[in-house]
Design a protein around this nucleic acid. Structure first.
Lengths: 204, 204, 204, 204
DNA sequence: GGATAAGCGAGACGGTACGTCTCGTCTTTTG
DNA sequence: CAAAAGACGAGACGTACCGTCTCGCTTATCC
């Protein structure tokens, strides 16, 4: 897993260290849920967790690493990948789940955090791992559709997923319009069509 | 126009006020270009523009409004909407232009700013105006395609644009993968296909 | 009269100049009464008086001169000098009146202003005129007592008044203890005694 | 003692905290001496002390508390109370010392500060402690005189001191006339006389 | 079970941004 | 052309945050 803590202190998993870690994580998650990710600050986390700020700095180094560490940990379990039997069904269900996820403070917070964070070695690494794991999970929907014969075998799974989820993230971050189940369905439809092999002279 | 300045100061367009305004705008744009939008701070802007920070606060009130005002003004002229004669050509060209735009500091900065900014009355308003104008411009590509018979007349132009640009923004903000001309072309292809009316039993 | 206005403008009363002057005076007096003299600021005065701040600066130059000008004008009519028939009666009555005066916002404000103001030509002059007029008025009590034979003819009237009023001002400004009628009476008694010619070997 | 610092920082008396404290105190005292108490501002103190302004705000909270804290500390050692053998001698000597003290920037500064400061919990407390200690010290002169039989045993010591020092403070703050040794002597004489028990029909 | 080292509590501080407020000056615009 | 209107320059004030540092002490682990 991505470990953004300064020096892996997990050697002593049962004691004070773990207690501190948990308290801090909880505090961050709570703040994200209550006021949004950009209100997370070490002083507030420190207050809530009952942990000295210096201890937080010692372990996480910077605010950004702390936030990312916590949010990534909290997002460990990726979205469940549905298996409805049809590509459209899978995509629509998945999209709807994503919409819900991004509507909730944690999901929105994570997305914003990923977008905002200043790049650095560990962070780039952490981001990469995060998305790789996400894509890997979601691509199952595509490979199943290929197996079913719904899609050609050379389908680019990654871009397929991207076509589906990008508009949702786009609205979530940039236009701030809401998304709903209907949109999920529409997107699924568009993506399914987009992935079909070209028929006739479409733009010839 | 979106006007995020405190009080309409445009009354005196030739004098000191305008000079200050321009210097500040330039300074913000420069910093965005050099160090990214999140490095824009009033003290630095003040130094570069040779304008007292208090004057900046007086006029723009907060950092966020300043940034948005400047960036929106700098993005006044929207991306040129191409007219290549085919939908695919238009979309691919437009997507490529967007990729370039988002690659440049200003475009990237604006996107980040739009994503980051804490919502408030004026900002919501400004964001809405911004996207409305953008969509209005881009939708021309769709309506021309409809006119040419390439697309059905009930095509949802807005979502069509979204399908095209969302993945680009998505990569720009969230995965931080680069995008290139090839991607632009692929996206155009996918979108064209996605917009075709359903043929046969696609997901029935 | 002490005139702390920049350039004594219109002698012609009744015009706009006079209206502005009055409004400003009133505003200052009001603020002093409501929030104390150190809360008087040009912006607030300007708001209340409905007069542009630049107009105030034009006329009074600085905040301090404005305050002093207004307060001195408002204190034009000095405290009434009583004539009870005895020195003690006069002094006690006068002291009590002073206590009341200094208890009220205007009196307290004027005292603080006199103490605070940064010295400058005009201000030194104004302060001198102010105290001279005050002493001149109050010294009548002493000269009447001399006339009545209550005091020797070489009594130093000025210091006599000072002995009486200094403790009241002292409490008002420095210890911030309250003063009351009883104190007025005590002070009068002490002063009367202090002014008696030495009898026998007092500290010989 | 009166401690106007935010939190008791005395725990580590030899370390950085103490160094910072001393530097700040010195800087304030210097500014008072050079330019007067109303020129003391956190930025200037910060510069001179080589201490960040934020550190000053953290510890003292506001400018007023800082000034009072420093000035009170600097005035810790109250004026020496003389013991000349006679009441008049004691009072005259004491008054002369006070005159000198108030002539010096520090004394004048402290007096102005006490007069100017906006009241608040801690400040009221601090002022009370200050004056109490001053009065307690000075009243020894009176009690000694009582012991010597120079004064009746029911003499009000507090008001006696007040009669002596008020005129000096009065001139110092309000009329801004100078005071000199002669005045000290006169005041002593007046006070001694004032404190004598009434003889005959003084104001009958 | 006692030594020992990792990590925490406590308490600053340096550095810096933000935003508010005031004073006093200067410059457009307008009557 | 003088006054009103509208900034701006200069700078203080106070708040908040990030990140660093230094001690002293607790505590989990290891011998």
């Amino acid at each position: 897993m991505t470990d953004l803590e300064q020096a892996a202190p997990q050697r002593r998993p049962g004691g004070r260290a773990a207690r501190v870690r948990d308290a801090v994580h909880q505090a961050v998650v709570d703040i994200v849920a209550e006021h949004g990710v950009d209100k997370v600050g070490i002083p507030e986390v420190s207050r809530r967790a009952g942990v000295r700020d210096s201890s937080i700095y010692r372990r996480w180094g910077t605010r950004e690493k702390l936030i990312l560490d916590v949010l990534l940990a909290a997002s460990e379990r990726t979205l469940p990948v549905p298996d409805t039997g049809t590509l459209h069904g899978d995509l629509a269900t998945f999209a709807a789940a994503l919409i819900n996820y991004l509507d909730a403070p944690l999901g929105h917070g994570l997305a914003r955090a990923l977008a905002f964070v200043t790049d650095s070695e560990d962070i780039i690494e952490a981001r990469k791992l995060f998305w790789d794991s996400r894509y890997r999970a979601a691509e199952v929907m595509i490979s199943r559709a290929v197996a079913r014969g719904e899609l050609p075998s050379d389908t680019d799974a990654r871009i397929a997923i991207e076509l589906l989820i990008a508009p949702i993230h786009f609205r979530n971050l940039l236009t701030r319009e809401g998304s709903d189940a209907e949109l999920a369905d529409q997107l699924a439809t568009y993506v399914v069509r987009a992935l079909q092999p070209a028929r006739g002279p479409s733009h010839a």
